[in-house]
């Protein structure tokens, strides 16, 4: 199956929103300045969003998922390498699941 119309519409819509975010900050700076509070709000958004995705997933998961998240953060801090962190975490989850946890 190539590209379904509904998916095409969704991708088109999300792309316009993404470009809108890129262009809007540049455009609006011509007229208004970003206050420190708004800047702090925008800066905190990605980490809050990531917490909101990962937190409930961890709460619903079991020991393999908890171990995996700890491994991802630990390996990333230790090595600074995304690939090692993700591969190690995913491998650990697959392994502990295979052991029947």
């Amino acid at each position: 199956m190539p590209i379904r119309p509904e998916i095409l519409a969704a991708i088109g819509f999300l792309g316009i929103l993404s470009y809108g975010c890129r262009a809007a900050g540049f455009f609006l700076m011509r007229y208004v300045a970003i206050t420190p509070r708004v800047e702090a709000w925008l800066r905190a958004m990605p980490i809050a969003l990531i917490g909101a995705i990962v937190g409930p997933a961890a709460a619903k998961g079991g020991p393999p998922e908890w171990l995996g998240l700890a491994a991802a953060v630990g390996l990333m801090r230790a090595t600074g390498n995304d690939f090692i962190a993700v591969a190690g975490a995913v491998g650990l989850v697959a392994g502990t699941r295979a052991l029947g946890f």
């Binding site: 961890a58 953060v73 962190a85 975490a89």
Partner: peptide, 16 residues
């Protein structure tokens, strides 16, 4: 292979 765990794992590394 725990592929369903890739998304949380990537988010955990991006979080740092």
């Amino acid at each position: 292979f725990g592929i369903d765990f890739m998304l949380p794992a990537f988010f955990a590394t991006m979080a740092l």
